[in-house]
Nucleic acid binder design. Structure first.
Length: 348
DNA sequence: AGCGTTTGACCAAAG
DNA sequence: CCTTTGGTCAAACGC
């Protein structure tokens, strides 16, 4: 298959451009807040707050020019550190919102979209459904799911899809419309390591984060209660509820509270820090499935599944300590279902 | 010999 | 308890 390159959105370019374009003042800011330049473009959805949707995110607008970098550093400076910006509210300072957009967009590109883009086609969209404790993102064609299409087309531009994280957050998935992103463009993976996440968690000030987190949990609970009161909530209704929630203009105190609502501790097993649970289900037309998604997998099982004439194959990531898995199975005519389970917390 | 896959056995969760 | 089902293990197999 002839696949055009994935130029402006290539996360490797984001990193390289940022690396070489910091001036002295910006470098001092980074040092002042104990940040590395990687912090600017290696966010994780787990650290973002509610309402971090990205209505103005555009292709090629993800920290690739000096204005974006300035925005990020200025916002960090004014907030007093990156930790204060983790999960900034949409309703907070506009600059913080901009940063949040950048963070979300970059995060998706770097840690989730790598799988998605490998199987992306122009006629498909990525859409998340909120699960109990996991996220399920499904690639569905407008023809097969009119309801999702209606929601998707509501406010988005061409080349954008809406994506909902496991925290109930909305993000825009930016891709090159009409093109099949080049898998090679994502091979220089420079995503977060376990150490990156641990150090990020350590930077969250105990005095504010823990206090705010506890209080904000009540806000979240009340929100969840309001969600569960209505049975058979359609996706459209869910979207509206989320947007209503995120568009609220609470008092400044509550704004701060919402900043950490999505933060949650990483799971621990013994002394090992595990990644948060993450699951993505992709249903892709067979013709768009590429032979490699950039990761190295080891097949460890194959199973016949009830009701499916095709078997399901089980794969584990070959990288040491990485618990990422995937399942691949045929489902219906010309469709392949690929389930990614767990985040890759390592470089490719 | 080494590496990756296959495949039946095993296990745990759910009903 | 038992049965069913899906996920995993690991020895066997094959290139």
């Amino acid at each position: 298959m002839d696949m055009p390159s994935f130029q402006n959105d290539d996360p490797s370019n984001l990193f390289n451009n940022l690396n070489s374009s910091l001036d002295d003042e910006e470098a001092i800011l980074l040092q002042k807040f104990n940040l590395s330049n990687r912090d600017l473009i290696f966010p994780r959805a787990e650290y973002s707050g509610p309402g971090c949707c990205m209505p103005c995110a555009k292709r090629g607008d993800l920290g690739t020019d000096r204005g974006d970098i300035y925005h990020i550093l200025d916002a960090i400076s004014r907030a007093g550190g990156l930790s204060e910006l983790i999960g900034c509210s949409r309703s907070a300072l506009q600059d913080l919102h901009c940063l949040c957009e950048l963070r979300n967009a970059s995060q998706i590109l770097l840690s989730h979209l790598s799988e998605t883009t490998a199987f992306h086609s122009c006629s498909h969209s990525v859409y998340n459904k909120k699960g109990c404790s996991r996220t399920c993102a499904t690639i569905c064609s407008p023809e097969t799911d009119a309801e999702l299409t209606q929601v998707r087309d509501d406010k988005l531009l061409n080349g954008q899809d809406r994506m909902r994280s496991s925290e109930g957050l909305w993000s825009i998935l930016v891709h090159s419309a009409g093109e099949q992103p080049h898998v090679q463009a994502l091979n220089r993976w420079i995503g977060p390591t376990i150490g990156d996440i641990e150090s990020a968690l350590e930077r969250i000030p105990q005095t504010s984060a823990t206090r705010l987190f506890a209080k904000d949990m009540r806000v979240q609970e009340s929100y969840i209660d309001s969600q569960t009161q209505s049975n058979n909530v359609s996706n459209k209704d869910t979207v509206s509820a989320v947007e209503k929630h995120s568009n609220q203009t609470p008092a400044s105190n509550d704004l701060a509270l919402s900043a950490v609502s999505s933060w949650r501790p990483l799971q621990t097993v013994g002394s090992d820090v595990m990644e948060p649970r993450y699951k993505v289900v992709l249903k892709v037309e067979k013709q768009y499935v590429v032979s490699s998604d950039g990761y190295k997998w080891r097949k460890y099982g194959k199973k016949c599944i009830k009701g499916n004439p095709y078997s399901r194959s089980y794969y584990k990531c070959r990288y040491a300590r990485c618990n990422a898995k995937k399942q691949v199975e045929m489902c219906g005519e010309g469709m392949v279902q690929i389930t990614y389970d767990g985040l890759h917390l390592h470089c490719r």
